[in-house]
Each structure stands twice: as C-alpha cells, then as structure tokens.
Design a protein around this nucleic acid. Sequence first.
DNA 1: AAATGAAATGTAATAACATAACATTTTTCA
DNA 2: TGAAAAATGTTATGTTATTACATTTCATTT
Lengths: 136, 136
Amino acid sequence: MTSDVHASHAVSLKKNQKLVHDVLMTAENPLSAYSILDLLREEGFRAPLQVYRALDKLVEFGLVHKLESLNAFVACSHQECSHEEPAVFMICNQCESVRELGDTGLDNHLGKLAKKQDFALKHTTVELHGQCSKCT
Amino acid sequence: MTSDVHASHAVSLKKNQKLVHDVLMTAENPLSAYSILDLLREEGFRAPLQVYRALDKLVEFGLVHKLESLNAFVACSHQECSHEEPAVFMICNQCESVRELGDTGLDNHLGKLAKKQDFALKHTTVELHGQCSKCT
DNA sequence: AAATGAAATGTAATAACATAACATTTTTCA
DNA sequence: TGAAAAATGTTATGTTATTACATTTCATTT
C-alpha cells in the first residue's frame, strides 16, 4: 500500500482517516473536531484523539483544511487535483457556508511580500468573513 | 469621557482595558488570554473573563488584533494611525515574533475577489507562517 | 445632589477545543 | 517471518472561551 501524499489519486487512507474524511466530504459546512466525534460514535469512535489524529493526517495530505478562525475543518474542494495550492476561504457569517478558492495572483502577491521581508514563507492562512451571495 | 473609537488619539480606556493593553504593548510576542491573566494577577485579575472582556473591547477599538492561527493576541503596531486597515501578519514559527504589515495592494486584491463572488466582505484574516529573517 | 441607565467589573461554573502519556494492534517491508 | 513504523484505543489532563448572575462605576438628566 503506497501513500503518495500530494499526488491526488494515490493516497490510501486508514480506517479512521477514511471515516473522518467521509464525514467532512458529506457535510455542507465546516465541522468542529467534537462534532465529527459525535457523528462517528456509531462507528465506534470514543475519544477526541481518534478524530484529531485522523485530521492531522488528512491536513498533512492536503485533503482537509483547518479554518483557523472557526476552529473547524472542511474537506478540500479540489477533488481531482494535487491539493497543494494555498487557498482563500470565504466564510459566510450567517449560514456558515465556506467557499474555497485558489488564486495564483494572491499567492504571487503574498510570496513577493514575504520575499520583501526576508521571510521564508511556509504556510498561508487567508480567511475572509462576510456574507455570501445567498444570504444578501 | 469620550470614546472616539478608531480616531487614534481619542480612545480612553477603562482600567482593565488599559492593563491588558499595556501588557500587550510591552510584550515582545503574542500572548494568550491566559498568559495575560497570569501577568495581571498582581494587579488583581482573578478570572479569564476579565481578560476576554478587555480584549473584546480592544479588538473592537482596533488597538489589538487576534491571531487566529495562534489563539493569541498582539497590540496593533500602528501606533499613531486609525487602526482601521486590514493587515497581514507574518508569524515566525521559530521565535514566535510577529510583524504586522499594511498592504493596500492585497486589500484591493481581496476586495476584488470578494466582489467577483458576490461576497460582502466584513473582515479578513491573513496570517503567514514561516521563518523570519533573524531566524534563517 | 439624587435618579437613572449604560457600561464595566467581579466571580463561579461550565463549555469547547486540543494534547500528553501509555498500552496495544495493524501495517509495511526488508 | 520478524523487526520497525504507523495507526489505534483509552484515560487523563491541559488550554481556550463563554454563560449566568451579582455588583459597581460612571456619565447624564433632572
């Protein structure tokens, strides 16, 4: 069993990772770790660590993103890609829906900004809060 | 006593707000609410709410920012300005130092992106993690 | 100055988010 | 097949944040 992380098709998930990923893929909105735990009690989950460990791996694989401003998690919406690109999240304060967008222009901009400051950029968190089109 | 919020010079802080703000102004790095609590026990602080309530106000005034990816707080580094502009935070994973930068180009970019998606943008969280110049 | 209402504060309890530590099982691969 | 690495199970604990309720401070109006 290979685990070609970041190669889209080739990540083979363990049991708990699969369960957590499935829950997030199915969910309409971001879920907290404890919500996931509750949703998976029927599947035998008993403790937060089972969720957090799976989430750690899924985030590492790029299959799940953590929304820092919500302490919640979403499945990556780029189904058939490498899950490598930084992203922007638009989070509706009203309906809690999240839209994930890639934006190479933004990535370039942030890259330049970091370079200008001699900052070795490793990870970007870009989360926009407001009201989505449906809610206005 | 006036409270011209967002008018740089004219915010007059209450006792607890002043204490919390002073601690953050003095600190080299971001502080968690509970670190602030510990630093203010000598001043009579006994409970987290005393810190969180002060922080809420200070954030509202634009004098303090919350770093969502750290669950920690920093004083706004724009001493003599309106504290209104969105900002980028560069956070060193090694020394935990934070540099706050204004970037109107970025703000424009994010504004356009939101507009394109019919998203009524209220607040932006942009936090860059990596290694600062001193640590490389 | 007394009355009023809004904002700020004090305190205890609890909720929500996350990790440490240790034992065991499963998977990988030489 | 046997050793090492990864994943899992479980308990306890650590960390971050809020609810609920009582009291005090402070600006304003009369």
